[in-house]
Write a protein that binds this DNA or RNA. Structure first.
Lengths: 356, 356
DNA sequence: TGCAGTAAGTAACTCGCGTTACTCACCCGC
DNA sequence: GCGGGTGAGTAACGCGAGTTACTTACTGCA
């Protein structure tokens, strides 16, 4: 005989959940009075005495407002919808965290819907219609679209019915506001750091050169070098697969190509996974980090950067901040601010560890 | 002059969203008829003709049901609440993914609420009241509590008002059903794998010995050894901090303690981060993996396991499956199945890579 | 012809709450 | 002693649906 409770009973309790009418009856007043008190109406004239009587009744009965009914009556839901593939490719979870925290602060709820169901189609699609539709059925007041990596996306039709903000991606049609990392400044910071450490011959392990991240970071790198009167030697830029193996191969190529005295003394890896591979290539050759070769990464993937030996100095993608900023921006829009296609750039801070 | 749209206009469009009455009017029928058709009522007698007339009207007007109103009238929300600290400590995000996907399949929405706000108190608390309360206000039909690591937790009072399931943690008060990884079987599988590879002298890099994960995995390891007629040498079990550094230190201790011929030929690291440190210790000593020392991990932290060189063979925590199973269990409970305090164990599969 | 039975709908109530308009008693000043 | 203000509250409608009970017309059969 296990101790059990029938959910029917629980459901019954819940179904007959106490309503405002119950509270009103218990306090001997009208339902309207209860509503006025609970919503702290400015110009309602309710005596202090009945006010406390009502509050007591609320306590006594354990009244809990019904958010749905309230939304229906007041025509506002306090809900934002977040459509994202991050749920399924959790590289950028911190976006969700940032958005969630900010929403919580604003007393709003985030309805999170996944976006990579089977019907996703086309290049850069994946921000899915079905999810959007479901969210609109819930009468969300605004929509957020978040991507795992910085790129252009096409947003479903429905997104234009309510205020919408894109996070870590931008509207390929150029109509919606977006929040993206300042890749260029990030690249500049990274290379600046290496320059400050005295390096002038810097190898770059590049990503797929076409994605916004690569374009921006490389541009920033060039700017930093230019600031020091240097130029980026194209031969020192090697593209590879965005994995540890890709980084390993690229690093090998750079390291083995030159005699010791012409070898770059520092590597700028455009992401941390590649840096991880570069570490192996360097160590394999009996070289030390940062003694012989300094390494700087990008992305700040905690599990890698903080646990590599030596710990990896890297530039962080401001996921959490972008998430929070997305919600703030959305709040402004739903509050009446005009919608423009502005693109807000968010700083990528340098995280100093021990590899430079 | 940027192209702008006033959100007021958008809001107006949304406010005057088309309702069932609009559809009814447009189709020249009663609202009831529309409701019957849209909800596919069994015993409703509506002619095929008006049925299509109604569907056409739905299309023409772009009618979109109001989920809130429906919930209010039908007394069911199709929402589950998920309270979790994972949003803020994203180690086990896959739980969310699993739950989310399953919920989506069941046409249900997951309301995710964070659980580590400032007011969290007490040991193992952190599954927070405020979040629960908010979710109950939304009239969720059931609650899920998910933890980042396997442990006992205390659940807020409110959780007992609706069906509730714990994921990757269990009710310290022993009243609620839970889904947890089968740590013991996992430990057994790991050591079995090493035994199969011919190792008999196996070092163990242990976690904090008190947490359920350590207890279970170690017990499994002993069982596996017993199956081969061996015993676990207590001297070969070294506990360390659950980080790469901790793993490094522990591995050094084990490796340096014995002359070459008495040295263990394999290490069972109770998590992947420690395995990462162990790798360094091994490589530093000029030993090869898996040639001289085989290494097996636990957790399958993709970013580590799949990118270490050689790739790490490890036992995976079935986060995604636990999330899905949690939702399935909850669905059963809300459907009327009696609530018991059962603990469902989920298998931890072995992921073969190249370190054994 | 008369009556039951069914197909095809519809009127009206409900869900829990926000909100507007209205009532009623009382007090104040002239 | 009477008009008008004000404090304290309430009746009643609407939000967008689900649902029950009822009506109406038509058909078939004795």
């Amino acid at each position: 005989m296990a101790k059990t409770t029938t959910p029917q009973k629980a459901a019954a309790v819940r179904q007959r959940g106490v309503t405002m009418s119950d509270v009103a009856r218990h306090a001997g007043v009208s339902r309207t009075a209860v509503s006025f008190v609970l919503s702290n109406r400015e110009n309602a004239s309710i005596s202090e005495e009945t006010r406390t009587r009502i509050n007591d009744a609320v306590q006594a009965l354990g009244y809990r407002p019904n958010a749905g009914a309230r939304a229906l009556a007041s025509q506002r839901s306090d809900w934002y919808g977040l459509v994202t593939e991050i749920v399924t490719a959790p590289f950028a979870v911190d976006i969700i965290k940032g958005a969630q925290d900010q929403a919580w602060l604003d007393h709003r709820f985030l309805l999170i819907a996944p976006s990579d169901q089977a019907d996703a189609v086309g290049p850069n699609q994946g921000l899915e219609d079905a999810a959007t539709e479901k969210l609109l059925e819930q009468r969300v007041e605004g929509l957020l679209y978040a991507a795992t990596y910085h790129r252009g996306v096409h947003v479903p039709e429905g997104a234009h019915e309510v205020p919408t903000v894109l996070i870590n991606c931008f509207d390929a049609d150029g109509k919606l506001p977006s929040i993206v990392p300042d890749e260029r400044a990030g690249g500049r910071i990274a290379v600046d750091r290496l320059l400050r450490a005295g390096h002038s011959r810097i190898g770059v392990i590049n990503l797929d050169p076409h994605i916004p991240a690569a374009v921006g970071r490389l541009k920033g790198a060039r700017e930093a070098l230019a600031g020091a009167g240097l130029e980026l030697d194209p031969e020192l830029v090697v593209s590879g697969h965005a994995t540890a193996d890709g980084g390993y191969d690229a690093a090998c190529e750079i390291l083995d190509r030159y005699p010791k005295d012409q070898r770059p003394t520092a590597l700028f890896c455009l992401n941390d996974r590649m840096a991880m591979g570069a570490y192996d290539a360097i160590k394999e050759r009996g070289l030390t980090i940062p003694g012989d070769i300094a390494v700087i990464g990008f992305d700040n993937q905690e599990l890698i950067a903080a646990y590599l030996r030596p710990k990896l100095t890297t530039v962080a993608l401001p996921f959490e901040k972008m998430g929070a900023l997305g919600v703030q921006t959305l709040a402004a829009l739903t509050a009446g601010q005009p919608i423009t296609a502005d693109q807000q750039l968010v700083d990528c801070p340098l995280l100093e560890r021990s590899s430079v």
